[in-house]
Design a protein around this nucleic acid. Structure first.
Length: 488
RNA sequence: CGGGGUGUAGCGCAGCCCGGUUAGCGCACCUGCUUUGGGAGCAGGGGGUCGGAGGUUCGAAUCCUCUCACCCCGACCA
């Protein structure tokens, strides 16, 4: 195994894969497109999960579990929904294996299912089939259910965390008595996603609405958070859908209103996935590897002891012990690396793994009653007295969290352009970056631009300014100001 | 699904053209000693149905046929 990773400037996607593998986040599974999330990578997902789980519980949502197997017939109910997912479904057709006459293992043809079962690519259909049973009156509403599960979308090309055949996510599915309330819910969740991304993952995001072409199959409106990766391409980091009455009608979910009338239920659904781990890697990572925001880092402080002999070892160990204890008392996730590797190796290793703070402790430090701290975000290296540590570390972690966000935000802003001509547009888009420009609102224009440049409308931002703006392609008056970029 | 490529130790590869000792190298791994403030050194060691099947041959990693798998590039997706 070679040292280091392929530099970003040489080949960004190889850099990405190198980091994922060498930082020990994930590995390839035996079936094409599958991924094993290793403990260090899963810790990241666990932290994201815990944080968001807390947010939705504080806003009245509850967790449940629905089966991963969905009757095929459910998918025929909502026309656009089936159209959106038909091409990437895994289907269970048999329930048994048997040994053939020549000793090989085969699918038992006798075990063929009468109705095939679809492995969920998303759970709207099965959830709404159940909601039909659970909802009778306005008193049953709103119904605010979420689940943390795996889903399967059979993809042609895959990339670890960003696009895999099976991935983990949360999917929220809510039912409401009015359209207004459902829309409010959609936007509330979008705001929670924004907070999660910005305050927790230190990833600045644009919020806005997807165009008709880009919205979720079966939705009335799709809102999204959209982030710029280190190669200036865009990544959809979370989506929140207002479903109107589409699924209620497809699954015949009605309720009695206060004034004793019958109406279809209004719905939302929303999701974030393990793709967010990919976003963290690509937004913050550098040529040394990961740079993890402290709030998500499995270890916020990694202590590298330096000892030339057994005496030193004992000296350093005794010195570190109360530090580790004190940090843990202060809810700092700290790790002592006593592995057999050389200090130099450990420095590189923990830089690869993105630990926000490295603490070096050797005999010299013990003698001076101090330690050496190194910030992963700035490479800044400094000495600090032992007695100041417990105060300084939490502050420093906050600083790193903020500094990573600021760096990412500056990068995005520097690479976001407002432009006046289509030539300029093509130029910027081909070199990577966001373009903010006018769009006449016509799907034909959208498709034409996509075919000519491979860039898509990432979102119609909430803060759009259409006054005096004209369409970058057709020259007609702009219906919307939009963000264009090449996307993952 | 169209185009290109690769299968030899855990990983990365050489050997193949031109068949011939016991299939080799780097990294990783194991043991021991010396080391440790930016990827340590030396010595010893373990590990292979050469992707699979068939064929040619006295003899196949090497030549022929078939097959399987995976990777990269183009149309869809969180």
């Amino acid at each position: 195994m070679s040292k280091g990773v392929t530099p970003q400037s040489k080949d960004y996607s190889t850099w990405y894969t190198d980091v994922v593998i060498k930082a020990g986040l994930a590995d390839y599974g035996p079936v094409k497109g599958t991924m094993v999330i290793k403990p260090y990578g899963f810790a990241l997902w666990d932290n994201i999960k815990e944080s968001f789980d807390r947010m939705i519980k504080e806003t009245g949502h509850v967790n449940a579990y629905f089966p991963m197997f969905i009757p095929k017939s459910f998918f025929t109910r909502e026309a656009k929904h089936i159209e959106g997912f038909a091409k990437e479904c895994a289907i269970v057709t048999h329930t048994r294996l048997k040994t053939d006459s020549d000793g090989s293992l085969i699918v038992d043809p006798e075990s063929r299912l009468e109705e095939e079962v679809i492995i969920r690519p998303t759970s709207e259909t099965i959830i709404w089939s159940m909601y039909k049973k659970w909802i009778q009156s306005y008193r049953d509403l709103p119904l605010l259910i979420n689940q943390w599960v795996n889903v399967v979308r059979w993809e042609m090309r895959t990339r670890l965390f960003l696009r895999t055949t099976e991935f983990l996510w949360q999917e929220g599915h809510t039912a409401h008595a009015t359209a207004e309330e459902a829309e409010e819910e959609t936007l509330l969740i979008l705001e929670l996603y924004r907070q999660l991304a910005e305050d927790f993952l230190a990833i600045p995001v644009l919020t806005g609405l997807k165009t008709e072409a880009e919205k979720f199959a079966g939705a009335e409106k799709t809102y999204c958070i959209e982030a710029m990766m280190g190669d200036k391409r865009s990544l959809q980091a979370g989506t929140s859908h207002y479903l109107g009455q589409n699924f209620a009608k497809a699954f015949d979910v009605t309720f009695q209103t206060k004034d004793n009338k019958e109406d279809y239920v209004y719905a939302t659904s929303w999701g974030i996935s393990t793709r967010l781990v990919g976003a963290v890697i690509m937004v913050h990572g550098d040529d040394k590897g990961l740079r993890l925001p402290p709030k998500i880092a499995p270890y916020q402080v990694v202590i590298v002891p330096i000892a030339r002999n057994k005496d030193h070892e004992k000296l350093v160990k005794d010195f570190i012990e109360p530090i580790t204890f004190g940090l843990k008392e202060n809810n700092v996730r700290v790790h002592e690396d006593w592995s057999d590797n050389s200090p130099g190796f450990k420095f590189n290793e923990w830089e690869m793994k993105g630990a926000p703070i490295r603490m070096e402790v050797g005999p010299r430090d013990v003698e001076n009653n101090q330690v050496v701290l190194v910030r992963r975000d700035t490479n800044e290296k400094f000495n600090i007295g032992k007695e100041d540590l417990l105060n300084k570390i939490p502050t420093l972690l906050d600083e790193i969290q903020l500094s990573l966000f600021e760096q990412a935000k500056n990068f995005r802003d520097e690479n976001t352009h407002t432009i006046n001509s289509y030539d300029e547009f093509k130029d910027i888009v081909s070199n990577g970056g966001f373009v903010r420009c006018g769009w006449d609102g016509d799907a034909v224009t959208e498709t034409a631009i996509k075919n000519e440049t491979k860039a898509t409308i990432r979102c119609i931002p909430f803060d759009e300014q259409t006054e005096g703006l004209s369409c970058i392609y057709s020259g007609k008056p702009a219906k919307h100001e939009v963000i264009y970029a090449k996307a993952y």
